[in-house]
Every structure is written in C-alpha cells, then in structure tokens.
Design a protein around this nucleic acid. Structure first.
Length: 365
DNA sequence: AAATCGTGGCA
DNA sequence: TTGCCAAGATT
C-alpha cells in the first residue's frame, strides 16, 4: 500500500496540470454538477459537453427544469441515449423544486431521487459540496484495479467493495472535490482501457500491475455478452406533405420518443412484407411499399440493427389509425419533426432522406 | 444476480 | 467489419 497522502498528492498535482477545461468545472453549482453527472453516466466527456451547454442554457436552474415538459427535455437529450436519464432528471427536478429548491446534501436524500445511484450521489457530494465522500466509477475501478492488482472481475461484489474501501481510505480529507475528479481524469486520459500511458502516470511507481507487467490484464474482464444482429423494417408514410409518426410508450426502449412505425423482420419474411405487416399491427393502416429509401445501420445495447427503410403508400387516405404500440400519433411536417425526439436510427433516416434527391421534395415544408 | 437501457468512436 | 467500451441506475 503506497503512503496515502503522497499518493493522493501526486494525482492531484498531475490533475492541476492536465485537467480539461469543462463548463461544469467553473462554478460547481450543485444543479450543474448534477446535470453533468447525469449526462456522463455511460457517456464519454467530449460527447456530453455540447449537450450540457444547450441544456443549462435552456434550463438554467432546478425551477426552470421543474417547469419543463418532458418532450422538450427529451429533445435536448436526443442522441445521447439512455433516455430514462432525461425522464428521471425532469422528475427529480420537480421533487427538489417542490421541497424548496435546495439541492440535497446527504447521500440518503440524493440516492432517493430518481436516476441518482451510489456513484452520482458521491460525485455530487464531493464535486459540488466537497464533502468527504468517494465517487467510484469505471475509471476509478480501473485505476485501483491496476495500482492494487485486484484479480477479480469488477462485476463481483467483493472486487467492488475493495475498490470502494480503497477510495474511502485514499481520499484526502477536505479535498474530495479535486481528488475524485483527479482519479477519474487520470483513468480517462492516462490509465485508459487500451494502450495506457504508464510513462506519464504520476503513480506508476506505486502500480502493482505495472510492476508485474500485467497492466493489460487489469481490470479482469467480465463475461462478455453476445451482440445480436437484428433485421428491422420501418416505413415512412406521407399524406398531404405530412409524415406519420407515433410516440413510444413507457416501459420499453426509447420510451417517450417518436418513431416511424415498424418492427423486426421475422423468419421467412422479406423486409417489405415485414413493414406492411407491422403497419397493420401497430396502426391498422393497410399500406404498400412505393420504393426503398435506404438501409441504416445502428446499434443499441446488445443489438446491431440493420434498418430497412421504405417509402409507403396508403390504401385508404382517409383511414384513422388504431394504435397498439404507441400512446399518440401525429401527421407531422418535416419542420415539426425537427421539434420531436427520435431514436438515432430514425433521425439518421430523416437526414438521409433530406440529402437524397429522390426525397428532398418531401422535406420542403 | 443478471438483464436492460443508446450511441458513437476506436482499433 | 466486428467487438469493446464509456464519470451507472434500475429492476
């Protein structure tokens, strides 16, 4: 075990010289720290920054956010993924605003808010309030797994407990704001998953995995889950210059986001047959394929999706939809579509159509 | 405990 | 092209 105060000091000194300039590192208001940490869950820093800027510009404090409607919050989250984070943020803002607007300052109160777990609570307590609380994320786990040669996968409770214990022990009193960020920054910039830059690491002398030459084997990888290829068909139905979209219900992927109807291509079925069947099942509309638009590839969670997209015609232009897979529908102009939040694959589809001479006329409204 | 929830960048 | 992974939370 390295001497804890010099260990922490070396990491803090390194951080002072290498920290990235970030918008939420300017004032450390609890609200901004909270928003940034929610955005950073399972998301890399560079990707979150522009979302953060837009979000706090539109909702500068917890009261503004509490008054927001969920649609607008989701629109600001579009493309970031894990949309329950956005819905939880809106819910938590209402809870905080109703109890006076003061952001909680204890781990128990923070964890009670939707979307805030052990890591985010520790991050808010330390970064916003400088309370002596550890904040253990994947960066911290990786750094400590290497420095202390933890030989069990982080998925195991014992390994997690060991890291948490170390994080609490090594935390220099009164410096959690800087130390917790410093360890995470070290993990993000130096002690990286692949090709770590041990030659520039401030604690390489203390690193047991480096001494043993097994840095690449720490942390021990957990069981990897298979990626499942998925064929999906979706259709763009146009009537009087407006496109048919529906809103996804709660309790499933992309809850609260809008989409073009569609679904998985079943065995023995062509994508064309699938989109006709799915439209019938989800809307009651009888449609036919006018022409293929594009094939969009994207992934989500453990799936790799090949999205077959078609332009459709309706048999009965005056038919009313009977929704079975959505809470709401709209015939929307392209301009109106831009105000709604879509999953990335469907947003890609729209972008492709706009850039395709065959379909630009549909997007002139 | 293990699955689920998104997305894009990287090698 | 495919697999890996990221400032995790929830059920």
């Amino acid at each position: 075990m390295p001497e804890s105060s010099t260990f922490a000091r070396r990491i803090i000194d390194w951080f002072e010289h290498n920290r990235r300039d970030l918008p939420w590192r300017r004032t450390y208001t609890p609200y901004q720290v909270w928003i940034s940490e929610m955005m950073l869950q399972q998301t890399q820093m560079d990707r979150a920054v522009p979302y953060f800027e837009r979000f706090v510009a539109r909702f500068p404090d917890v009261h503004a956010l509490a008054a927001a409607n969920e649609e607008e919050v989701l629109k600001l989250w579009e493309g970031l993924g894990y949309y329950s984070r956005a819905r939880n943020i809106a819910r938590a803002a209402r809870i905080v605003a109703e109890s006076g607007g003061e952001f909680p300052r204890s781990r128990a109160e923070l964890t009670a808010l939707p979307g805030i777990g052990p890591y985010t609570a520790g991050a808010i307590l330390s970064i916003a309030y400088n309370e002596d609380e550890p904040a253990v994320d994947a960066n911290v786990e990786r750094v400590y797994a290497r420095v202390f040669d933890i030989d069990a996968p982080m998925a195991e409770r014992e390994a997690k407990a060991r890291v948490r214990e170390l994080a609490a022990q090594l935390l220099p009193t009164g410096e959690s704001r800087i130390y917790n960020q410093a360890v995470m920054e070290l993990g993000a910039l130096v002690c990286t998953p692949r090709a770590p830059r041990c030659d520039t690491c401030p604690v390489s002398e203390d690193c047991e995995a480096r001494r043993l030459g097994i840095v690449a084997q720490r942390p021990v990888p957990g069981r990897k889950k298979d990626i499942v290829p998925l064929e999906v068909a979706t259709g763009v139905l146009v009537r009087d210059g407006r496109l048919f979209v529906q809103k996804r219900p709660e309790g499933q992927v992309w809850a609260g986001l809008w989409e073009f109807p569609g679904g998985t291509v079943e065995a023995g079925e062509t994508p064309q047959q699938a989109v006709v069947r799915e439209f019938d099942e989800e809307t009651g509309f009888t449609v036919s394929v006018r022409e293929p638009i594009a094939i969009v590839r994207h992934g989500y969670t453990r799936f790799r999706v090949t999205l077959h997209c078609f332009l459709l015609d309706m048999a009965d232009a005056s038919a009313e939809p009977h929704l079975t897979a959505a809470t709401e529908y709209r015939w929307a102009t392209p301009r109106q579509l831009d105000e709604l939040a879509f999953p990335a694959g469907h947003r890609k589809l729209m972008d492709l159509m706009r850039g395709d001479i065959r379909f630009t006329h549909l997007f002139r409204i």
